[in-house]
């Protein structure tokens, strides 16, 4: 039987982590428990983050929006500050897993798992999220692009936990878009996904574009060339087609059981074309 520690406040958490440095942290367990099941040998001690109110906060802080790492996807989705104002994130979370998985899984878990297919990640990249880390003695904050270093690799030191992510004040995006391509409509791992933020002038000219793709590289991928190809031009199939071409060149997908690299590359570009049909 695994030892499971359920700290009720941050003090107890630090104590538990110090007393059991070998223990694994988990929140919803929807990633960790699946991985542990596949492991041979006795299960490690577990420290559960579920009861820590401090990690579940969702609030505005000095113009930023703070999303606690322990908030479940369902909680974030239901929050008025997300649902109304951050459709790019809301759409992504609404496509994550199934109702059961969204009720258990957390933002922190999705971040630390750092899968290239993690559905919250492309929106967080385009939104310019920063990750807030805390330990018993200190805290630090770093851009998500630095926090996530590779598939399953993050900049997290022993004794640290993720407190949450900070999203800068929304920059007047005219169009927020997320689309995930999966093998089915629920419980689908992304074959490719796209998060896009566009700011258009009143004439429909792209002033700024931010694009991020999931499942087409070791981490979420950006394609600055594609973003540049959209900037200063009216949003339409012509500019999007060009951007799609450039994106296809920039991304580095792999073949796996679910889809081939060439499919992913092609569809990653194609997904941009959908923006032509999205109403601003």
């Amino acid at each position: 039987m695994a030892k499971v520690i359920l700290p009720a406040d941050m003090g107890q958490l630090w104590e538990a982590m110090e007393a059991h440095p070998e223990a694994r942290l988990y929140a919803g367990g929807t990633d960790l428990l699946v991985r542990l099941r596949a492991q041979a040998g006795p299960p490690p001690a577990l420290v559960c983050l579920e009861r820590l109110e401090e990690l579940r906060i969702i609030e505005e802080r000095g113009g930023e929006l703070f999303l606690g790492a322990g908030a479940t996807h369902a909680q974030i989705l239901e929050h008025p500050k997300v649902r109304g104002r951050l459709p790019v994130l809301a759409r992504a979370l609404a496509s994550l897993g199934s109702p059961q998985v969204r009720n258990m899984g957390t933002l922190g878990g999705n971040l630390v798992t750092a899968s290239p297919a993690g559905d919250s990640l492309p929106p967080l990249y385009v939104l310019g999220a920063e990750v807030q880390l805390i330990s018993r003695k200190a805290g630090r904050r770093l851009p998500i692009t630095e926090f996530i270093k590779g598939p399953g690799r993050v900049d997290l030191n022993p004794g640290e936990v993720v407190a949450g992510v900070c999203l800068p004040k929304s920059e007047g995006w005219t169009l927020q878009h997320f689309e995930k391509v999966g093998r089915r409509d629920a419980l689908a791992i992304a074959l490719v996904s796209l998060a896009a933020l566009l700011r258009l002038s009143s004439e429909g000219v792209v002033e700024e574009a931010r694009l991020a793709w999931g499942s087409v590289g070791p981490t979420v991928m950006r394609a600055p060339q594609a973003e540049a190809a959209l900037k200063g031009r009216p949003l339409g199939l012509a500019s999007l087609g060009e951007a799609a071409e450039l994106a296809g060149q920039a991304l580095t997908p792999i073949d796996d059981l679910r889809a081939s690299a060439s499919y992913r590359r092609r569809v990653a570009g194609n997904l941009l074309l959908r923006l032509a049909e999205r109403e601003a």
Binding site: S98, R183, R184, D185, A186, L187, A188, I189, L257, R258
Partner: peptide, 16 residues
Amino acid sequence: VLSPDLATYIIPTALD
């Protein structure tokens, strides 16, 4: 077997 489990062997869900 290359599709050893229900994460790799995709069956329809109610939504599908």
